[in-house]
Amino acid sequence: MDFSQLLVGGIANGCVYGLVALGFVLIYKATEAVNFAQGDMMMLGAFIALQAVNEDRWGLPFALGLALAVVLMGAISWAIEVAIIRRLFGQPQFAVVILTIALGFVLRFVAGVIWGHEPQTLQTPMAGRQFELGPVSVGYDEAFVILATAALTLLLYLFFARTKLGIAMQAASQNQLAAYYVGVPVKRVSSMIWALSGMLATVAGVLFAAKGSIDPSAGLLGIKAFAAAVIGGFGSLPGALLGGLLIGLVETFAARYGAAGYSQIAPYAIMLLVLVLRPNGLFAQFAQKKV
């Protein structure tokens, strides 16, 4: 009973990590850059949704507010790519890492100025309601998180495997110059992928906020999602999701059964272990560099 209850909670947590990790992987797959600000984009998305939905703010219906937040966040991510990231085109990969770290700080600062630093709750129709599934009581929010994640993952998988744009994105990620020669508008594709990843981050943020509260430093959760993406191998969408689930489960169970103090370390310890044993993730995709 206790076990299966924890299992549901862990999976729900893991789905949020997985979704943020999917955002990392998307950008990585298309531009080979790692967006260290993904967690902060998630936080910003959640706050925009909160602004739109909560009674004491704009008080829009939940679905409408969510859609508005997703669209807005997509636009913001697009703008970030066009205004900042694109100008780093052709510079070493590491410049993007530092830049996105700084970007994360800026987003956190902006959110702190607008919404304050106290944790706030997002009012959702799912809050506080639950149903019984055999011996386990599942919260509506947990069910919503799990279903939404499954749907999004399937959608993304189909997008990358089947659509013209998805394949163009893969081409741009493998060889920018060659992709450009065969007619892929590399810059525009990269803007699109940022917008997509911003939308995904918003959904993750709303799911995260629906399960608890949100404050400007919630973006640090992005680092746990990193662990998820690394375990999955960074270039693989299903891998990121699996990694997220693993991290969510390990964290939940470690918090319940492990000694105090050790449970926070558990996700990172697993990540380091994976990096040591399989330096390119569980689903390795690299070959020895050729000259």
Partner: peptide, 28 residues
């Protein structure tokens, strides 16, 4: 020694993990 096998972002992330764990390890 383990970091040798990694490069680029993987190294950055692994060292980031070390940085995050530091806090908890100091408390432990």
């Amino acid at each position: 020694v383990p970091a040798l096998k990694m490069s680029g972002i993987y190294l950055a992330i692994a060292t980031l993990a070390v940085g995050i764990i530091t806090e908890d390890v100091i408390i432990l």
